[in-house]
Amino acid sequence: MIKHVVMWEFKDFAEGNEKEKNIELAAEKLLSLKDLVEEIKFLEVGKNINQSEAAYELVLITEFESLADLDQYQTHPEHEKVKDFIGKTAAKRVLVDYEK
C-alpha cells in the first residue's frame, strides 16, 4: 500500500477569493476525487486547527494499491483540474509518499 500525504498553505487572496474560501473550495474539490478516481483506495482531507506557525492549513491523505496506481492518479484529468486550482491558490506545498 502506498500513502500519499500533501499539505498546503494558501495565499491570502487568489482567484477572486479570500484564503478561507479557497481552503474550503480546495477541500471540497479534493474530497470529490474519491468518487472520480478509481485508483484511490482511501482519501481524507483535513483543515488545520493548530495555531502553531509551523502548521499547514490543509492536508490530503490518500492510499493507493501501488506506485502505478499513484502515477495513474497523478495524471488523471479530474486530479489535474484540482491541481490547477490549488496551484493558483496555494502559497506553499510539501508532500511525502511512503510504502505502508
Rank of each mutant, 00 (worst) to 15 (best):
K34C: 08
L60R: 13
K83V: 06
K19Q: 04
K100S: 08
A90H: 05
K81E: 14
E57P: 14
V96R: 08
L31C: 02
K21R: 15
T89H: 14
E65S: 15
I2F: 01
L33W: 00
E20C: 07
K88G: 11
I2Q: 01
A55I: 01
K21M: 09
D35N: 15
I61H: 05
I2H: 01
Q74D: 07
V94P: 12
E53H: 12
L67F: 08
R93F: 09
G46E: 12
D84G: 13
V5F: 10
K3I: 05
Q51Y: 04
G87T: 13
I61S: 15
K21P: 15
E57I: 12
G46C: 12
E63Y: 01
K19W: 13
S52H: 09
A55D: 08
I23N: 00
L25D: 14
F42I: 06
N22V: 06
L33I: 13
S66C: 12
K83A: 11
V82Y: 01
A90I: 13
S32L: 14
L60W: 10
G87W: 04
F42Y: 14
A14G: 12
Y73P: 09
A27W: 04
S32T: 15
F10W: 09
I2W: 00
L43N: 08
Q74M: 07
L30P: 01
A68Y: 07
L58H: 00
E80M: 12
E39S: 04
Q72M: 13
V96T: 06
I49H: 07
E18H: 12
A90C: 11
F10H: 05
D69A: 04
D71V: 13
P77Q: 07
S66P: 03
K19P: 00
S66L: 01
Y73F: 00
K3T: 02
L60N: 14
V96D: 07
N50D: 13
K21D: 10
L36A: 09
L31W: 00
E39I: 11
L60E: 15
E99V: 15
E57K: 06
A54F: 05
M1Y: 09
F64A: 11
I40D: 00
Q72K: 14
S32Q: 12
E44R: 06
F13L: 07
E20S: 05
A91S: 13
G16L: 06
K81D: 10
K21L: 09
F42H: 14
V82F: 00
N22K: 05
G46K: 09
K41Q: 05
E24N: 11
A26N: 07
K88T: 15
E53I: 09
T75P: 10
D12F: 07
K3N: 10
N17A: 03
E18F: 11
E9Y: 10
T89R: 10
E9G: 11
A26K: 04
Q72D: 02
H79Q: 06
E39N: 07
